[in-house]
């Protein structure tokens, strides 16, 4: 099976869905690049080259390169979705959502509900998130909790290339608005990914490691950190289950609660700010519905409640690390024998 990068499979998924369904269109700032200026067409293919090549294959009618106008093109995409197209819009950095949040949370998220199920809004908003790219406070946040908070939106956080392809095809075929979070540090990660199309259903968590002692729930880039921590802890005799929920809305609460009922211990690893986060949300879920199973306090591994620092030294300390995950898992695994 061919090894492919996260960047490559996202491009492959969009292209194959555009070939399959003529209603699928791509839209966003610089997704071809260089529009309206002399020189090479599709010079950029998106700010990090993810959509490169789509313009050449599908042309300007289906690959709409826009100015820096999130409020306009996200609004236009929502309208297009409500009237029959299936736009795949790119909100370059999720940090820019502030200028188009009304279009997303007050319009796209509400149509199906407020029109009594008679309207659908099949839009995918692809967006980059996450730290570690030395891109400072306005280009490094993990804002998926904000979208998860809004009923009517589906929120997807693929943790690897295999996951990204199947979840993006599922997102494009889904009839509801889907916010698709791409971690910019994962773009060059490679793994075996089938050439064939496939879909991964929303709301079914993936169990990436199976263990008896502690359940670790992690999102996006943090899944590989948790896997590494689990592999290293196994050598110390601590056996860890790692759960990648894949989607925060819908959330597979059953898999999380079942695992905690077996291990009795929960650690949530979340790269987002700690307040009102997925870490807080899952801790709430388990405290409320799985309390009787707990044999140790619930713990979270998150950044502090501050903006993402620009200083590389500070940014490295800010983002949850494998070492911190291991420390926290050890601290509650040890509680039992003590």
């Amino acid at each position: 099976m061919p090894k492919k990068t996260y960047r490559q499979v996202i491009n492959e998924a969009i292209a194959s869905e555009m070939r399959r369904d003529s209603r699928v269109v791509a839209i966003g700032t610089d997704i071809a690049g260089g529009k309206g200026s002399p020189g090479e067409e599709d010079a950029w293919g998106g700010v990090l080259g993810v959509t490169k090549g789509l313009y050449g294959e599908f042309g300007p009618e289906r690959v709409l390169d826009t100015p820096i106008t999130e409020s306009a093109f996200i609004g236009a995409s929502v309208g297009a979705a409500a009237t029959g197209l299936r736009p795949v819009a790119e909100l370059m950095f999720v940090d820019f959502m502030g200028v188009c949040f009304d279009q997303i949370f007050n319009q796209a998220a509400k149509f199906r509900y407020m029109f009594g199920g008679k309207a659908v809004t099949p839009i995918v908003i692809r967006t980059m998130y996450g730290g570690g790219f030395r891109a400072a406070s306005q280009h490094s946040q993990c804002l998926y909790p904000l979208f998860t908070h809004i009923p009517g939106l589906k929120v997807v956080i693929p943790s690897s290339p295999y996951e990204a392809k199947g979840l993006l095809i599922e997102a494009i075929r889904d009839n509801d608005p889907v916010i698709f979070f791409e971690h910019k540090v994962l773009y060059d990660i490679e793994e075996d990914v089938p050439d064939e199309a496939y879909t991964i259903p929303f709301g079914e968590a993936n169990i990436t490691r199976e263990g008896r002692d502690v359940t670790v729930v992690a999102f996006g880039r943090m899944v590989s950190f948790a896997n590494t921590a689990a592999d290293e802890l196994k050598r110390e005799g601590i056996s860890v289950t790692v759960i990648d929920p894949r989607t925060t809305s819908p959330l597979d609460t059953e898999t999380i609660l079942e695992s905690v009922s077996a291990t009795g211990r929960l650690v949530v690893v979340d790269e987002a700010h700690p307040r009102c986060s997925m870490a807080a949300d899952i801790a709430r879920l388990v405290a409320e519905e799985g309390f009787k199973d707990l044999r140790a306090p619930i713990r979270t591994v998150t950044p502090p409640h501050t903006p993402v620092p620009f200083s590389p030294t500070l940014e490295d300390i800010y983002i949850p690390s494998v070492a911190r995950i291991k420390d926290v898992v050890r601290s509650i695994a040890a509680k039992v024998s003590a």
Binding site: Y162, G166, P194, E196, A197, Y198, T199, I200, N206, I207, E210
Partner: peptide
């Protein structure tokens, strides 16, 4: 029946066709 075996079958069954 391990998690890896299950995941392998899920990956196979998800493929189009």
């Amino acid at each position: 029946v391990s998690a890896t075996m299950i995941e392998g079958i899920q990956r196979y069954k998800r493929l189009e066709g």
